[in-house]
C-alpha cells in the first residue's frame, strides 16, 4: 500500500514477492515496486545510486534482521518511507551478521532534505531498538498490521 501523509509518503509491503538474493538486487527491485505503486514520480535510478553510495561507506544493516538503507531524490518534496518484509533473508553485512528480512528504506528530498533526513533516521534508529516494535514488525503478516506499527514509530515527527 502507498499513502500520502502530511509529513511523508509511506509505502508498506508485508510480503515482497522477489527472487533477488543480493542486497543490490533487492534494492533495485524494491525501488521498482515502490515506483509502480507510488502516486509520486521519481527517478528510481538516481535513488538507487545514492543509496548504493551510502551503503559503500558502511553497511546499513541494523541487526536483528533489519536494514535501514537511505538515499536522496531530487524529485520528491517530502520524505518517502518504505517498509518491506522479504520472504527470505539477504546478506547485508550487518553488525550482528544476521541476514536481513525487513528493509526500511528512507528516501529524502535532495533539496533541503538534510535536517528531515537526520530527524527521520534518528527517530527510526532509536525506536527500532525497541524489542516490542521489532516483535510487532516481525509478527505483522499484512500491510495493515505492519502499517500501524510503522505509524507508531514515526508519529512524533
Amino acid at each position: 500500500m502507498f499513502e500520502e501523509q502530511d509529513a511523508l509518503f509511506l509505502y508498506i509491503n508485508a510480503n515482497v514477492d522477489t527472487q533477488q538474493q543480493s542486497k543490490e538486487g533487492i534494492l533495485k527491485e524494491v525501488l521498482k515496486l515502490i515506483q509502480e505503486s507510488s502516486s509520486v514520480t521519481f527517478d528510481r535510478h538516481e535513488v538507487y545510486r545514492s543509496v548504493k553510495e551510502r551503503e559503500e561507506i558502511s553497511t546499513t544493516g541494523f541487526g536483528e534482521g533489519f536494514a535501514i538503507p537511505h538515499g536522496k531524490s531530487s524529485d520528491l518534496n517530502k520524505p518517502l518511507v518504505a517498509v518491506m518484509k522479504l520472504a527470505y533473508g539477504v546478506d547485508w553485512e550487518a553488525m550482528d551478521e544476521e541476514e536481513v528480512n525487513t528493509v526500511i528504506l528512507l528516501i529524502v528530498p535532495e533539496e533541503n532534505g538534510e535536517a528531515q533526513h537526520l530527524k527521520l533516521l534518528s527517530k527510526l534508529s532509536y525506536n527500532l531498538m525497541d524489542d516490542e516494535i521489532q516483535k510487532a514488525i516481525r509478527e505483522a503478516q499484512t500491510d495493515k498490521a505492519l502499517h500501524s506499527t510503522v505509524q507508531a514509530m514515526f508519529t512524533e515527527l
Binding site: 561507506i57 558502511s58 541494523f62 533516521l121 534518528s122 534508529s125 532509536y126 527500532l128 531498538m129 525497541d130
Partner: peptide, 17 residues
C-alpha cells in the same frame, strides 16, 4: 563516525539497559 543511526541506537540501548 558515519552520522546518526548508531548514535541513537546506542542511546536507546544504554537507556533500556
Amino acid at each position: 563516525a558515519t552520522g546518526v543511526a548508531h548514535t541513537f541506537m546506542a542511546k536507546r540501548a544504554i537507556e533500556d539497559a
